[in-house]
């Protein structure tokens, strides 16, 4: 299990310095264009010509490519095998073996789906690699995200590593007492319960005190909140975000009036 806050990597790159909302808008735009735009090659071009170069500008290129491959390779392998064999509209047989036949339409469909998912996952990854989650939440709060939602997300990100550490401790303790976590399915199911109990109840008892602690610090105050940090937003970035909107409209138009 991974014990970290998010995918964020601390670097000083122009991409890291961009306003988080700008990066979020760009990510959404690339995804929407990949899914709505025309042509078989558009998503792969977005990945090769925009996302990959950008990841190197952000000084996270290697981690970006490695994580993208790790997260998507199994899906893609599966996708290509299944779709090229079982795609419902497949007519053009490329080659056949035993009772199976690989069809061109299936391969095309698998390629398009795979590259679209690639753009979706890697756009988010690039955003996450170059943006501290706290800064993203702060910026979104200043743009109207409810403070309670920001609180939930921030504290979840900090609770998870602790609960993972606790889970690892309990798992080790149970294993040393002879708990079988490999074995047959029945054994593995029986291994789950002694793990879950201490983990869940241990974290639930803290809820009351934690609620008191944040109320003691004015969390429920009805006064307008202020912010310690101000996140920079430049006019150029605002213009870029409008451009993104334009790109989305164009992609949508190409879908509606081909």
């Amino acid at each position: 299990m991974v014990e970290r806050l998010s995918f964020y990597l601390e670097r000083s790159s122009p991409l890291h310095r961009l306003n988080p909302t700008t990066k979020l808008v760009v990510a959404f735009t690339l995804i929407l264009v990949a899914f709505l735009g025309p042509g078989l090659l558009l998503p792969s071009l977005i990945f090769l010509l925009i996302l990959t170069p950008l990841s190197f500008v952000g000084q996270v290129g290697r981690e970006f490519l490695r994580t993208t491959v790790r997260l998507l390779l199994p899906l893609f392998a599966f996708l290509f095998v299944m779709q090229s064999l079982f795609y419902p509209g497949g007519k053009t047989v490329l080659f056949g073996f035993w009772i199976f036949s690989v069809k061109l339409e299936g391969v095309r469909f698998a390629f398009l789906t795979a590259t679209r998912v690639l753009v979706m996952v890697s756009s988010f990854l690039l955003l996450l690699f170059t943006t501290h989650p706290g800064v993203l939440l702060l910026d979104l709060t200043q743009r109207g995200l409810p403070a309670s939602v920001a609180y939930i997300l921030a504290s979840t990100l900090q609770i998870i590593p602790q609960m993972q550490a606790k889970a690892a401790t309990i798992l080790d303790a149970q294993r040393s007492r002879g708990l079988d976590t490999s074995g047959s399915l029945g054994r593995r199911i029986r291994a789950l319960l002694p793990l879950v109990g201490p983990l869940v109840f241990g974290s639930l008892v803290d809820v009351e005190e934690r609620a008191i602690a944040i109320e003691a610090r004015g969390f429920r105050s009805s006064r307008p909140k202020t912010s310690l940090v101000e996140i920079e937003d430049r006019p150029l970035e605002r213009a870029l975000r409008w451009l993104c909107l334009l790109a989305i409209i164009l992609a949508l138009g190409s879908r509606l009036w081909p």
Binding site: A154, A213, S227
Partner: peptide, 29 residues
């Protein structure tokens, strides 16, 4: 008593953590 449960969880550094209450009640920056 429990120091751990008094950490808000909303903030990522000690400095921001201490400022959390002041943000909530709207103290100027």
């Amino acid at each position: 008593q429990n120091p751990f449960n008094q950490i808000s969880g909303a903030k990522f550094t000690v400095y921001e953590e201490i400022a959390f209450g002041l943000e909530n009640i709207g103290v100027p920056r």
